[in-house]
Design a protein around this nucleic acid. Structure first.
Lengths: 231, 231
DNA sequence: AACAGCGCTTCCCAATTTCGTAAAAAGGGG
DNA sequence: CCCCTTTTTACGAAATTGGGAAGCGCTGTT
């Protein structure tokens, strides 16, 4: 299953170089020579990864990055002209997954594309598979939860929290990471917010149906999902 | 957990700047002012990442890079004086993971360090691999510890201490370094504090189950982890 | 072998940090 | 404007942590 990559870059030669390098490694390539076209193609084709030049005519790279991040978490690699360090740092903070400084070797770019895709793929592998635990079934595709066979109503944040934790039973999620994964990399709120959602989740999950505790506190760190246990 | 970074750089001012910037972001820093010392420290401490100046007195940067690459795949960021394309390409082909051109801003360097670690960390979760010793299994991902198959409850500091020591069996950790790695560079407490935590760890680890001693005292220095031994 | 000196171990308790939860405030569709 | 969700705030409860001090053990010396 070849990944589809959208290249947004105004210099034709660079674009061609990148396309050839990517295609040689089996990727499928879409090209756009300005931000507007790029966003349209993005919306229409929903590619697996975007390579984005910062210096673009018309809608500039920042704007494109923002737009893409606003509506998806598709991996994004930035191309930046050498020397403006601000671009690099801000790029990472804007939500780019990696960046490459011009001029670059096509081989290096391909290596980074693969690295980013691998990283991504490792994280949300079975994105839509139901998550099943004793007495608890979570269905991400439908965003529904069954507790002892009975459907329960969760709010969006509650669902995301539960789905993330339950998808990795036993693994500890520091609050910081939960904020990053569920609230997004640019969220600047209080970590105590998580506690409140956890409290409500526990309430909906369990108090009624026996002395079960799905979500346990890891002191000084965060929370983790654990298979049901009797106390 | 705080990553440990080795900075090999001859100019004291640059070294200091880098150290301060890294420490402010929670990294633990080792310094070397020439290639020879750098390689020794590398071998002794096995840091999580190396920042390497190309222009060094004595053994030069290329040589250091080669040596490091010859025996490990620890991430490496190069500092290069000029914006010579040659340096850069050679550097990447020599096995550097990134490079930074002097003069650079500390913020940029820290951003690159994080990016490289993130890229790295996603691939080989070395940091989260379980640490296994006879009768003792430590799982950093879950922050759990099994002693003779039975789970035991450790506090955050206890766990961090045990994980750090057990990850480097036989290696002596001076109190000073333990404070730096676990409490952070800006901690100003008493070194006796460590003793207290070690005491409590030993208690939880062992008194009951035989004359085993996992953590041994190195008189006048600090502590180390040793494979179980009967007395 | 006894001794002195210094470092280590342990006990104890107070200070600090972190957590859970309630309640209030803020945000966001319809 | 109302209802539902989310975020902030506040505070008591719980757990962890740090430092003092007494006692023990190691080391090198006499």
């Amino acid at each position: 299953m070849a990944s589809e990559i959208l290249v947004i870059e105004d210099e034709q030669n660079v674009r061609r170089l990148v396309r050839i390098a990517l295609q040689r490694d089996g990727f499928s390539v879409l090209e756009a020579e300005d931000g507007k076209t790029g966003l349209q193609l993005f919306a229409a084709e929903n590619p697996d990864l975007v390579i984005l030049d910062l210096m673009l005519p018309g809608v500039d790279g920042w704007e494109v990055c923002r737009e893409i991040r606003a509506r998806s978490s598709t991996p994004l690699i930035m191309l930046t002209a050498r020397g403006d360090e601000v671009d690099r740092v801000l790029g990472l903070e804007m939500g780019a997954d990696d960046y490459v400084v011009k001029p670059f070797s096509p081989r290096e770019l391909v290596a980074r594309v693969k690295a980013v895709l691998r990283r991504q793929g490792a994280q949300d592998n079975h994105a839509d598979e139901p998550i099943v635990h004793p007495g608890l079934v979570i269905n991400p595709a439908e965003r529904t939860v069954l507790l002892d066979g009975q459907p329960i109503r969760l709010t969006p944040k509650e669902f995301d929290l539960l789905a993330l934790l339950a998808a990795h039973p036993g693994k500890v999620f520091p609050r910081e990471r939960l904020l990053q994964r569920i609230w997004g990399h640019d969220y600047w709120g209080d970590e105590r917010t998580i506690d409140v959602h956890i409290t409500r989740l526990r309430e909906k999950l369990g108090r009624n149906s026996g002395a079960r505790e799905y979500i346990s506190t890891v002191w000084g760190i965060g929370y983790k999902f654990e298979v049901a246990e009797r106390k």
